[in-house]
Write a protein that binds this DNA or RNA. Structure first.
Length: 224
DNA sequence: GGCCAGGACACCA
DNA sequence: TGGTGTCATGGC
């Protein structure tokens, strides 16, 4: 079932949209991180938070030599919280980061290699049981740290595609993801670039109404 | 000074 | 299931 309303015929092919964005922006080389573990940390820190503030928190963690699984697992929650203040919700996120590292140690002996060796759907299910990891965070981890083909649905995806009336942003995460993953081959690198390109588009062309007029997606008829 | 940002969860009806 | 309050800093 499509999450779109009666105007399905006006919805461009998702791969065509992807190619159009790729031609416009080029490869994005995501995720902006130096290691899979840093991807995991960033995925938690960016929850409802501007990336610029996440970068500050990551820098603090790096300076404190806490961007390592064992170090983060060993540090106190209060010290961790102070380190990540800039990312907002710091008490909450400190607890969530501790929950993630505890999970990796208890389930995979502290080995990301072991964790990502698990089959994607099964691992997704298990990660979703960790308190503080919702579908978007988990899919970001699976895609960008684990190289597993799961499409990430975020606020930007909902905003851009619903503004074009290509989908109903009120639909559930799972139904939107199912739609995106049914309309194109299950290909990790494409999913990687596609989400990164959506974020890029939103950042460059969705901040001000004037910028919107220059958006590469304006060629599509449903543009408001 | 108000609004918003690459969510998730508890609680409620 | 679906709606609402909460968590909090920093940039514009």
């Amino acid at each position: 079932m499509s999450p779109n309303d009666p105007t399905d015929q006006d919805v461009p092919d998702l791969l065509e949209v992807y190619r159009h964005l790729f031609d416009h922006f080029g490869p994005q080389h995501w995720w902006p991180a130096e290691s899979p573990f840093e991807v995991i940390v960033g995925a938690v820190l960016t929850q409802n938070t501007a990336w610029v503030n996440v970068e500050k928190a990551i820098a603090q963690l790096r300076a404190a030599d806490l961007l390592r699984l064992d170090a983060l697992n060993a540090v106190s929650e209060s010290k961790l919280a102070q380190c990540i203040r800039a990312s907002g919700f710091f008490n909450l996120k400190a607890r969530r980061l501790k929950a993630v590292t505890a999970f990796i140690f208890s389930e995979y002996e502290g080995s990301l290699e072991r964790m990502f060796a698990a089959p994607g759907p099964k691992l997704r299910e298990k990660l979703l049981t960790v308190k503080g990891l919702g579908p978007e965070t988990v899919d970001s981890i699976l895609l960008y740290a684990g190289q597993k083909p799961f499409f990430v649905i975020d606020a930007y995806t909902r905003r851009i595609f619903s503004r074009h009336q290509w989908l109903d942003a009120r639909k559930s995460y799972e139904s939107l993801q199912a739609y995106f993953m049914s309309q194109q081959p299950r290909h990790t690198q494409t999913f990687n670039e596609y989400h990164a390109l959506i974020v890029k588009t939103a950042k460059v062309y969705c901040k001000k109404r004037a910028d919107c007029d220059k958006c590469p997606l304006r060629i599509y008829p449903a543009f408001p």
